[in-house]
Amino acid sequence: MGMFLFSCKPYQNTKIRKNQITYEDFRADQRLYPTDDGLIKYIDKGKGPVIVLLHGVPTSGWLYRKMIDPLVANGYRVIIPDMLGYGSSDSPEGFEIYNAENHAKRLLLLMEALGIEKWSHVMHDAGGLWTWELMKQAPEKIEKLIVLNTIIYDAGFYPPVRMKPGGLAKTAMWGYRNGVTTNTLLKNLFNQGLKENTLNSLDIEGYKTPMLEGKTDAMYYFYSQTCNELPDYSSVFENITVPVTVIWGIHDTMLQWPPQQTRATNALKVNGEDIHFIDEKHFLQETKAKEISYKIIDFLNKEN
């Protein structure tokens, strides 16, 4: 069994793409911002109107690596944070430090430190919860909102991992950070989250390395707390006045659009022409990066 777990590679494709970025190169481009809770690493590239790309769980800013160049080339300043507990950012001990309120507070402090008053905002997966909390704390900051397969309501939310707090969940986290079940987690995640898992070893490196560095406390909080009781942000939705577009991998089984379609469309006040369905599952940034980048650019350039 041990040999099986260690040999269960989370990728099938061994071919490296031309000019493919490595995780080492990605990290070399990151800058750091010290918060009271720990260091946050982030990408800051380009000049022009600001767009923030916010990851979810258990990913990091690495998820958006293929979208940086198209957005920068079209005149945008791209900010991609690794939220505390993920990617290259610090992973301090504790659990409530990773709740949505604290994630949002730290992101607001980062943007203030960068001198950015307003921005367009892209979020994915659990990044939606952190975004709704941010809009609750500072509703004037986001100018335009781009929704990518993110958490809005309980309806359609079927996370690949959901645990009860306690020993079993902590043991699972131990397995992820010690290489025992890391490959199994990632293989299942991307086999379920992509129509076809074409990721190679360099792609997986950016997802696997943070876990092997011990960054699992934030994951533990999300999988054992947040997943079991999603916050209600109905009051935030009622006050949304900014333009919104939805770009959704329509084959997603983890975050399904159809069960919440009517409710989410009405709550976010999104026009029908601003809802785009992509022929992919959950991790559309991996296989449809250019397509969704250009849809975002078209939306941002649109007169509202």
Rank of each mutant, 00 (worst) to 15 (best):
N266Y: 10
Q20D: 09
L194T: 03
G48Q: 10
L230V: 10
P258K: 11
K269P: 02
E196N: 06
W248G: 01
K187W: 01
T131F: 04
K144W: 03
N200G: 05
T22Q: 07
K144E: 04
D154H: 10
L185W: 00
L189I: 03
R17W: 15
K105I: 10
M211P: 03
R17Q: 11
Y11A: 07
G156D: 04
P139T: 06
L114Q: 12
S293R: 04
D217A: 12
S293F: 06
K187I: 01
Q225V: 15
K170C: 02
L199E: 00
E143A: 03
Q256M: 15
A28K: 13
I297F: 02
K47C: 05
T262Y: 09
L145D: 02
K302W: 11
D252E: 13
L168T: 06
Y11F: 15
P34L: 09
N197F: 00
N183E: 09
H121K: 09
L5M: 14
G85Y: 06
T59G: 06
M123E: 06
V180A: 09
V161K: 11
F277M: 13
K164M: 04
T150R: 07
G167D: 12
M1E: 09
M123Q: 14
N239S: 11
N149S: 12
T150F: 09
N102L: 07
T241P: 02
P231C: 12
D37W: 14
T241Y: 10
I292T: 13
F26M: 10
P165V: 10
M111Y: 12
G249A: 03
A73C: 03
F222N: 09
K105P: 03
A113E: 13
L114M: 13
K66L: 07
D90G: 02
E280R: 03
G61S: 03
A100R: 01
S60Y: 01
K45H: 12
C8M: 15
S89F: 04
S89D: 02
F6P: 00
M219S: 12
K288N: 04
W130I: 07
N266G: 15
D279K: 08
K295Q: 14
K187F: 00
L284M: 10
T265V: 08
